[in-house]
């Protein structure tokens, strides 16, 4: 079953203060010289943002403990240790794709061409955050639907993180043909638009959402951990 969503910018909770925190400024950063610029650039993105998301539910066909993999719709996903351990009790999966759309990266590229690397950087950050917030909203939608059936959900996991190879994104896209988000994948498993997120969410009676997913992993140099700590979101 295909579930599609289109988000208004206001639903994403992306504002100047949030982007400021992501840029490294702590509480009270509003006094900083860049707060006006950040607000202005967020304001430029807001009216053109076309954030979209979609998820599809697939039942688990087979778990393979030895290879730390799961078979979904005839495709083996090699999840590796961390993701496998977190989703092992799932009965089905919500595979999802969400995107900030092409607009933030267009603004980002234009700013760089115009010789404004700071604006380009901030647009890049805004685009990333839109995609991240959209993926969080997808998780909430999947959770809401699961709870109606008395089920629970895991965290969302994406190829490229927690040791799950980024090339596995090709398999994920195979199960999302003609996705309504208009996101495509190149040979290097990079998404277009760039500011997009794909992944899976485990669903089942015995799965758990881990509010501290990084506690089960020893890597301290992982971008996901850094983002979680910086962003303080789950």
């Amino acid at each position: 079953m295909m579930n599609t969503f289109q988000y208004d910018f206001s639903e994403l909770d992306v504002d100047g203060e949030r982007i400021g925190r992501l840029l490294g400024y702590g509480e009270g950063y509003q006094a900083d010289d860049f707060s006006g610029l950040i607000r202005e650039l967020v304001g430029n993105v807001a009216p053109v943002c076309s954030a979209k998301a979609e998820y599809r539910i697939y039942p688990v066909e087979e778990w393979k403990n030895a290879g730390k993999s799961v078979t979904i719709h005839g495709i083996d996903f090699s999840l590796k240790n961390v993701v496998f351990a977190q989703v092992r009790k799932a009965e089905s999966f919500a595979l999802f794709i969400c995107t900030a759309g092409p607009e933030p990266e267009k603004l980002c590229r234009k700013a760089m061409e115009d010789g404004d690397p700071l604006a380009s950087y901030i647009y890049d950050m805004i685009g990333s955050e839109i995609a991240e917030r959209a993926s969080r909203l997808v998780l909430l939608e999947v959770r809401k639907a699961a709870e109606i059936s008395g089920l629970r959900v895991t965290n969302r996991y994406s190829p490229g993180y927690c040791g799950w190879d980024v090339s596995e994104q090709h398999k994920l896209f195979e199960l999302m043909p003609g996705n309504s988000c208009g996101v495509s994948l190149n040979a290097s498993a990079l998404m277009n638009p760039e500011k997009s997120v794909s992944g899976l969410i485990g669903i089942g009676a015995d799965v758990n959402f881990d509010p501290y997913p990084c506690s089960s992993c020893r890597r301290t140099d992982c971008l996901y951990r850094m983002t979680q700590e910086r962003n303080n979101v789950t």
Binding site: L23, G24, Y25, F34, D116, P117, L118, Y121, I122
Partner: peptide
């Protein structure tokens, strides 16, 4: 300093 200040310095350098 953070990345924004560094980028502004780079812009001034350019």
């Amino acid at each position: 300093i953070y990345v924004p200040q560094m980028l502004m310095a780079a812009k001034a350098m350019n």
